[in-house]
């Protein structure tokens, strides 16, 4: 988490564009929120009924940890739309993006419940220490 799902009509985002957009999604999310890149997932689909396009050419849906400000969310949405536009050529007005907040306490990643926004550094340090201890115990 965050999980960004990008659904688009078939063929408009080619295989070469996906890693570039995924790279931008990761960078933008981390720049705006301070979250570590390890948390960022970006999945691409074509004509996926679970993520309705509603007449648009591309729809980016982000499920992000709760606690971000409206300004942060607006910047995420706008910069990610620009990235999709830049790498795919889809007109900007045919790209819709939105985010929904998910409480960090609802999510477990790498075996630990995710930290609240702003507590990532301590979480990562504790998480890595735990993994190192488990690795040592197993060797």
């Amino acid at each position: 988490m965050p999980l960004y799902v990008c659904n688009s009509t078939k063929g408009v985002i080619d295989d070469g564009a996906k890693p570039k957009i995924a790279d931008d999604i990761t960078r933008i999310h981390c720049e705006v929120t301070g979250a570590p890149p390890e948390f960022v997932h970006a999945f691409f689909f074509e004509d996926a009924s679970h993520f309705p396009l509603d007449g648009n050419t591309a729809f980016l849906f982000g499920s992000i940890r709760g606690g971000r400000t409206d300004a942060q969310k607006a910047r995420i949405v706008e910069e990610m739309r620009q990235s999709i536009h830049a790498h795919s050529g889809i007109p900007l007005d045919e790209i819709v993006a939105t985010t929904v907040d998910t409480p960090a306490s609802w999510v477990m990643e790498g075996g630990d419940v995710l930290p609240e926004p702003g507590e990532e550094a301590a979480w990562l340090a504790a998480h890595e220490a735990k993994l190192a201890a488990e690795s040592q115990a197993g060797s």
Binding site: K18, A22, I25, P37, E38, V40, A42, F43, E46, H50
Partner: peptide, 14 residues
């Protein structure tokens, strides 16, 4: 509900 991410379409940490 199962949703498969097509090959080459899933990225974590870029």
């Amino acid at each position: 509900t199962w949703i498969s991410v097509p090959a080459g379409s899933g990225f974590t940490a870029a």
